[in-house]
Design a binder for these strands. Structure first.
Lengths: 344, 344
DNA sequence: TCTGGCACTCGTGCGCTCAGAGTGCCAAAC
DNA sequence: GTTTGGCACTCTGAGCGCACGAGTGCCAGA
């Protein structure tokens, strides 16, 4: 790989950069003449043509038909992102606006909702935000409420502000004192624990109750563990689907599988799951595992309160997208959501 | 209006019905010859042509160009829905499947999510489900949890299974006993009350506490009332946007405003809000207040646990949609969600 | 009141041509 | 050796003309 790249001298790389920039802007194959006109490369079209031929030979660009201009391939975008582009930072006013908009949120739902809309608007693409994940967060409080003689509502509140709730059908009548006792003991042991550690912390609990009450206790605990484990813990919010209409000319064909993918939470979760925690991840075209997204790129990054990344967010757009701008917006938004979450 | 309709004899109505049915099926303007071939009307094409001319005169159908077939106008669909079509009931296996699918839900979120996906799948259109509204529901329990010396978390649980939560910053330290007292008193008065009635029921509460604690009490109550009033109580879930791709040929133009509308919860809420409670509402084309939905139809109906309709659900599709089938699906789903909610 | 016939309209698809943009290659210049 | 200008070649897309077919409106006769 590195060998291949080394064969391309600086001017060829400049040509590739120019091709990507122009194509992203105009959405039309770019030819040698137009290229020298718009970027002052200091060489003639003929020279550029030679370079283009070399770039095509290496698989970085491709021409749709003979005698049309060139468009970048996935591999070309990849090189562009890795070596030719710099993340474009947000301007100070933009950063202020982001922060201000996110600060207005009243609760976690609202924060996520605002984040996703903001991201969609900034990038003019489809934005995806995963809720702060349960697996990394800790128990703030667990509440038990009697609804009926043999029916209990269980509410789980996490440090990220998330609330999960379940109704439990108990095997027998549940006394108010037993319930209060159970509530107190559960919280004493579970509060502050990371969610995956909770079952272990509560292991010995049934033994501490009288024989009669044990079935109730175990039933409640079972439901609690279920809520903890529930993979539907992984929720996602979406915005900006209207931006799909700006995808391109041949778009009815492109847009259908994308819309389908967006409807499948599982697909989106896996998509974001591929993000390596620390840095920003860019998946270009066929690099995406999901087939329907083969002509789109995904830019994603982890975010979280404090140092730890507890969830991910990202943007989905056509491979022909403004990578520097998109990456800048994604990074900025992730940073600010993290701050907001840390504060609340 | 009634006068105009009376001028159309039975055969003309039959012709209109046939035109609607054919156009919905084929998506192409339907001509007189094709019409007599596919429906045995017992008359010749020429006769049908005369009837068509009359129908066009009255504004029920319209031809895109001279010498093309006819397509129904909004007014034509309206007449079709009002007088010519019968709601097509779901088959027994379909009903069983619906019920079975909805019964698998674990909580309210899940119920709504399943409902909306089901509706989208059945109608092959875009489905919208409003969460059971807070304003009609009653308080099941209100929970207060101390998070920090001067920080309290407030959790509101309704009889529809919905959970709202807020953190409250109190003016001073809050003692555990005061908190327990407050919790008990709030619940004693508010439990079972309809949400709008809660403020009145808690009016005299601050006076029952010692002077020192009153600021805390009023702050907590203020947040509670805010949570009750919050218009964001009105949440909505959406599914089936991928079905937009089946909208029609000129679809890039049609689809954009629709996607925009779908992103705006406010628009959707107003849309469903127009539903009159009892019966099913059908808004055809320009009958929709929102401009972007001028070439779509909305079929919506209220649903709820028991007799009372606490929320609404519906379907958005092209004006050229299968009204009888869609209406049947919407009605059936609404009925079963109501049952499921009543049981839980 | 319905029907068959007939002339008329118009959109669509097909084949054709032509201009323009872009390329590849080659020989000359730097 | 690299760059440049020139030239022939290719291909797409727009524009045009034409024939076809579907569909209509109207009229005279049943």
């Amino acid at each position: 790989m590195a060998g291949e790249v080394r064969q391309l001298d600086d001017r060829k790389l400049a040509v590739l950069r120019a091709i990507v920039q122009d194509y992203v802007g105009t959405e039309e194959p770019v030819g040698s003449k137009a290229l020298v006109e718009r970027h002052n490369l200091g060489v003639s079209p003929a020279t550029v043509r030679n370079d283009m031929a070399a770039l095509e030979e290496e698989g970085y660009i491709h021409q749709p038909h003979t005698s049309a201009g060139r468009i970048p391939t996935d591999k070309g975008y990849r090189l562009f992102v890795d070596r030719l582009a710099e993340v474009k930072p947000m301007s100070a006013p933009e950063r202020r606006a982001i922060r201000h908009f996110l600060e207005g949120a009243v609760d976690l739902d609202d924060t996520v909702a605002r984040t996703v809309r903001l991201l969609a608007q900034l990038t003019r693409q489809v934005a995806v935000v995963q809720y702060p994940s349960l697996s990394r967060s800790t128990v703030r409080h667990i509440e038990l409420v009697a609804l009926a003689p043999a029916k209990v509502m269980l509410v789980l509140i996490t440090n990220t502000g998330r609330v999960e709730q379940r109704t439990v059908d108990c095997p027998g009548t549940v006394g108010e004192t037993v319930l209060a006792d159970l509530r107190a003991r559960i919280n004493a042991r579970a509060a502050g624990q990371r969610l995956p550690d909770v079952p272990a912390a509560l292991e010995e609990l049934p033994a501490m109750f009288e024989q009669v009450d044990r079935p109730t206790v175990t039933t409640v605990l079972a439901t609690l563990f279920e809520a903890l484990a529930e993979q539907n813990e992984e929720r996602i919010m979406l915005a900006g689907t209207a931006n799909l209409t700006r995808f391109g000319h041949d778009f009815p064909l492109t847009i259908q599988p994308v819309l389908e993918a967006l409807e499948e939470q599982v697909v989106l979760l896996r998509l974001l799951g591929e993000t390596t925690d620390a840095a920003m991840t860019v998946r270009i075209g066929r690099e995406n595992a999901y087939e329907g997204l083969n002509s789109t790129s995904v830019v994603s990054v982890g975010y979280g309160s404090g140092d730890e990344s507890v969830a991910k967010l990202g943007v989905i757009g056509p491979t022909r997208m403004d990578y520097p701008g998109t990456m800048g917006a994604v990074r900025a938004v992730a940073r600010y959501v993290g701050q907001i979450l840390a504060e609340s």
